[in-house]
Design a protein around this nucleic acid. Structure first.
Lengths: 153, 153
DNA sequence: GCTGGCTTTGACGTCGACGTCAAGGTCTAC
DNA sequence: GTAGACCTTGACGTCGACGTCAAAGCCAGC
């Protein structure tokens, strides 16, 4: 099977396959005319890579899985090195998710507060009495001026 | 206040401030010698940008907030455009978090399965009888060969 | 006047996973 | 024998938010 067919079968592009090969991730045999040649094993390697990519794994993180398959194991995660990647990724995911959860909460709070302050300012007075300190005029921004400083005159 | 001092006050770098200026996000006045000059308002603008950055906002997404402050409002989110950005970011966060949650679950399942299969293979037979189809020898990978294809002979 | 610390602009580098274009070789079908 | 569909390598572009380096200007203190 040539590069175009493999790309199509895996739902990717030839450029991607050449990129993988340049990283040594998916080396190809060559037929007489110099064309890259792949077989079903390569398709499985590629599918392993793509699956992990969909999970957000970096290409380097897929390497242990690919090596594992190439070593003759029936699955890419049948090797300890792959399991380690799984575990690190899980920890990473937990961290990221927790961070995003906190950000989401904070942004939600900010939105709610800003919406209420806006609603209180627009109609001509705060209709639903809330425990907000109204915008302090002292802290208001001065509009941009054209003042030309001449350093220390 | 010059660029170095502002950077220090905001806990960032001069390069960052010049970058913001190149985007028109934080323009600076100039003193007689050509040095950039900032005031307390600029510091607040910068703090607004940095806060949103910490939340994962892109620089372009901070622009409505900065414009809002520069328009004289007491807060960067006192304008409808800023609220829109909040809302879009919230929706985006929800999507991302949900996607990551699903990935986390899937990776966790894969890890558990792979760990059990590995444990079942190593000690010399599956000790705790589980409902797994054992690795199929037929689907095992053939080790890399050095076969030289000569295309279609 | 000179050293050292600030500043200026300009421009290229980084990271990741490719996209895109160019110039050319190979093969099949008509 | 030639169009068209495939393939090759090489190299630059993309996106974002800066980092890093170079060459030079400005200023305070000694």
């Amino acid at each position: 099977m040539r590069i175009g067919e493999l790309a199509e079968q895996a739902g990717t592009t030839t450029r991607t396959l050449r990129h993988y090969e340049s990283l040594g991730l998916l080396p190809a045999r060559r037929s007489g005319n110099g064309y890259r040649t792949y077989d079903e094993d390569d398709l499985r390697l590629l599918q392993q890579i793509r699956t992990l990519q969909d999970f957000g794994f970096g290409l380097e993180e897929t390497r242990p899985f690919v090596d594992c398959l190439r070593a003759g194991h029936p699955a890419g995660d049948a090797c300890p090195a792959s399991l380690e990647v799984y575990r690190r990724k899980l920890a990473e995911l937990d961290e990221v998710i927790e961070r995003l959860r906190r950000v989401r909460e904070e942004v939600g709070l900010q939105l709610a507060r800003a919406e209420m302050e806006l609603a209180a300012d627009l109609p001509g007075g705060p209709p639903p009495r809330c425990a907000f300190s109204p915008p302090d005029p002292e802290r208001a921004f001065s509009p941009p001026d054209t003042e030309q400083e001449t350093s220390t005159p």
